[in-house]
Design a protein around this nucleic acid. Structure first.
Length: 274
DNA sequence: AGTTTAACCTGGGTGC
DNA sequence: TGCACCCAGGTTAAAC
């Protein structure tokens, strides 16, 4: 589920429930996430106050006075808020791996069937390997066509791989990489170093627009964090190539093709994308 | 150093 | 029903 827009939506949804709250208890029901949840973590967080909840790339950052929890949703992670938890403590669902009991009486529960997510505490987040090498935010000021053009010179990887590289720019996942390249008219297999300045200008603008629109969609589908999440709609109606192999291009009517790139399915229009 | 590949997991769908 | 396979919104570490 989580691409950048959903992580952002999750962050905005949790924020009012968690910021300023004291962690009364962290319950680790299953520590086997991408990296095991440290046995010391419940003790480290007990009675600490969440100063802020932020997003960097697809990471959620729980800020405390003494450090930061770096959390990721992996491929299948979700958070939800359970209100008045004293009366519903036993209704944990399968794959509810973490439970954060808050001073308010609410409980934040982390659910992740595939367990690709993580929940790591560090005192120096800026130096943490997971964060220190990340590229700029796609919705931030540093990301534009000039930047992409400069970074891509000499690169021989396909432009789609380049766009999905977290060292280049963060938050562009498999769906939005495909959709952005379609809208920019760029073939996903074209070498990054052989895409021109003007096309990178278009690509950067399109990435921004797609993510911005998707965030607005996520905000509507995931607004109620106190009930179980409905499946996000992602803007299924606006999808042009993702999951559409064999169907007709919305632009020209050609049959959408599919390629395998870095083990990821990649749809594209052989006519519109060059 | 840049690029590709394998690996981490569960669950849902498909085909035999 | 069962089973064997393939696929899935991500990312790192290892291998070319």
């Amino acid at each position: 589920m989580p691409e950048l827009p959903e992580v952002e939506t999750t962050k905005r949804g949790l924020e009012p429930y968690v910021v300023g709250q004291t962690i009364e208890r962290l319950l680790v029901r299953d520590a086997r996430l991408r990296w095991p949840v440290a046995p010391a973590l419940p003790r480290q967080l007990k009675n600490r106050v969440v100063q802020a909840l932020e997003r960097r790339a697809k990471y959620l950052l729980f800020r405390f006075e003494h450090g930061t929890v770096i959390s990721h949703l992996g491929m299948s992670g979700t958070w939800r808020v359970v209100a008045d938890v004293a009366n519903s403590e036993q209704d944990y669902r399968t794959h509810d791996h973490l439970a954060l009991r808050l001073g308010s009486g609410d409980e934040l529960r982390y659910h992740d069937p595939r367990r690709f997510g993580c929940f790591i505490f560090t005192k120096m987040p800026a130096e943490h390997p997971l964060l220190s090498k990340l590229g700029p935010e796609p919705l931030g000021d540093c990301f534009d066509g000039d930047y992409l053009f400069a970074r891509s010179r000499g690169r021989k990887a396909p432009v789609k791989s380049f766009l999905m590289d977290n060292h280049v720019v963060v938050g562009v996942g498999n769906i939005y990489a495909q959709e952005a390249l379609f809208r920019a008219g760029i073939h996903p297999l074209r070498l990054a170093g052989r895409v021109g300045h003007e096309r990178y200008h278009v690509l950067a603008a399109v990435v921004r627009e797609i993510l911005t629109v998707a965030i607005s969609r996520g905000g509507t589908t995931l607004r109620d964090f106190r009930s179980s999440n409905g499946e996000p709609g992602y803007f299924a109606q606006e999808l042009n190539v993702y999951g559409r192999a064999g169907e007709r291009c919305h632009g020209c009517g050609s049959v959408i093709k599919q390629a395998r790139l870095a083990n990821r399915t990649t749809g594209y229009c052989p006519t519109c994308q060059t």
